[in-house]
Design a protein around this nucleic acid. Sequence first.
DNA 1: AATGAATGAGACTTCATTCAT
DNA 2: AATGAATGAAGTCTCATTCAT
Lengths: 193, 193, 193, 193
Amino acid sequence: MNIALKRFAVDGYHATKISDIVGDAGVAQGTFYWYFKSKEAIFLEIIKEGREQLLAVISRGYRRDAGTVLDMVQASEAMLCRLFLFAEANRYLMELLLGRKAASDLINQAIADTRMAMENAFLLNIERAIELRMLPEAIDTRLRSSLLMSLIEGVISRWLFESMFPGNGVEGKTAQQLAAETAKFEFFGLLGI
Amino acid sequence: MNIALKRFAVDGYHATKISDIVGDAGVAQGTFYWYFKSKEAIFLEIIKEGREQLLAVISRGYRRDAGTVLDMVQASEAMLCRLFLFAEANRYLMELLLGRKAASDLINQAIADTRMAMENAFLLNIERAIELRMLPEAIDTRLRSSLLMSLIEGVISRWLFESMFPGNGVEGKTAQQLAAETAKFEFFGLLGI
Amino acid sequence: MNIALKRFAVDGYHATKISDIVGDAGVAQGTFYWYFKSKEAIFLEIIKEGREQLLAVISRGYRRDAGTVLDMVQASEAMLCRLFLFAEANRYLMELLLGRKAASDLINQAIADTRMAMENAFLLNIERAIELRMLPEAIDTRLRSSLLMSLIEGVISRWLFESMFPGNGVEGKTAQQLAAETAKFEFFGLLGI
Amino acid sequence: MNIALKRFAVDGYHATKISDIVGDAGVAQGTFYWYFKSKEAIFLEIIKEGREQLLAVISRGYRRDAGTVLDMVQASEAMLCRLFLFAEANRYLMELLLGRKAASDLINQAIADTRMAMENAFLLNIERAIELRMLPEAIDTRLRSSLLMSLIEGVISRWLFESMFPGNGVEGKTAQQLAAETAKFEFFGLLGI
DNA sequence: AATGAATGAGACTTCATTCAT
DNA sequence: AATGAATGAAGTCTCATTCAT
């Protein structure tokens, strides 16, 4: 599955042939079908496994008590840092999730689901912050979580798949730096500093 | 080209067969090759044409004189509004550009180029604002334009390709509303109201 | 027809597209079909026209009276010289006739016919020489004319289509020299000088 | 490969479809591509294999010591006999090599190479004979080997592909007879006997 | 568990020929 | 006489999947 993951990420779903995967794995073509029902099946399994790890990373650190704005920014920064570190360690997976390499409907759906789940985690955090009166009540929470997710998707893409986005002001940064900058923008926008 | 655009957007590059395109167009298969060298060629031509229109929309309204923060937000809002209206009227094109339907290397490159050109337009705006002392000088301009672009890509995707992102807090909004919210987030972040 | 001849000779029948011919000729594709029924038809017409010229060259100089061996060699040399000069001036035609660029059955037949007609001209010469008691009666005339034709085909091919036969001991020679050498071999074989 | 060889020889390269080959072979179309990379590839492989066999036949019997003219003629006759027998047993291969069924540039090159190699074998024999003072030194060796090769190509073509050359004085002869006649012509020309 | 040969549907593309103007 | 757009049959090759050992 790791071999397939890499191939899918680098070459894309369609361009990846079963013969490539088994070639890299050093087994015969038929062997593939002993372990996986189809090309689509292995992809879905890869996504499924990755999704669980990813959500575990994001969901940790659900806030219990109210705090200052600074607390909030720091908490967000910590979470983003965890997320970016995970993305760095699992770049191929992230490429499948955020990349532009479409596949079958079923697969696209699985990817969309995973991203929705991520977005949902952000939504919960925002709602919790409102509950604790750390964020203004008037906020459109769904919209904000969408904006947030968009931000993060873009940042990770530009950070990890540099070849596709040369000279983007993100490459070369550490996860920590990126998290700090992103969190600042998240809360204060362009005018923050 | 319009017929092909729609097919490519809906079905993806690989899933779209020449026979589909000519079928929809009501001509013979060979006729396609009288007008286009290959499947890849028509796709590239579509992108090229769309890119020009898109950039024309973004580039308009380059700022001449300094102004207040409010001016700046309104200017950004106006530009976003134009962009969103364009996206609404050209949703298939936007799906090719922002969607996750990979194709050949050449095509991916053309798409990436176009997105870079968009991002660059945002960069120029930010730099101009700094020049006019409307934004703090300390800002990392490239990073900010990347964040901005990320935001906009995400918003448009969620707005137009709802089927992929159900219940995302964006659907149903008008271009105007969306532009206002996005501009607000752009400048003030989550804490802005 | 000259344009087509050249294309057929250089690229071969199959590799030559009607669009190539009309492109070189500077007319529209449809125009071709006003003058020729089909691709095959123009080829056959080219062969037919060439055949007449070629046979005219070979058939001239039918011997009336007996003579010495030297007379005979000189007569053959003269004829070969005429033939080689013709071939030199009509190398594309010769390439169609002697080259390895096959086409349809009908065309192959037309080419084979033409070559048979050539061979027949040689046969008549040999028979006439026997009649005049210039060559021994015991000779197998058909076989000898076949051998002769083989010789000449090979020589012309190597002489004119050098690129296919590099370093063949024929290139660079004049028609006159070649005719002399060939005639000598024809009558005396390897042992002649 | 034998099935393909026959098809190529009989129908020509272009007229032979992969579906013909696999049809004759009784396998599926895809199976072809398990064994050969392309239509061109199988052709080249056929030529390569045939070339080795052919050259083995010609190269045998390199002369060690000087001898009489009769020795020389007999040696040549023996070699030609071997060659003709080989040609008879491999007529499809010979048709590919000597026939007029053009294909791709690569293939034409491979065929031309093979024929050059044959001609070279004849050249070596002639040079060896001069070295041993069995043939006059004044001879233009390359030219003579070209003439010889021409002769042999013509003879084999007429002998085996009769349908193309009806009534040519060669058909029906045995390899032995043909070798004798050709060798005689080779050394003595038309005037021999 | 593993192999690797075999399958066959289906895709893109070519190009001789036709046809309305 | 000429145009050039349109046609569509046909061919090569790909590749996910199956199957007999």
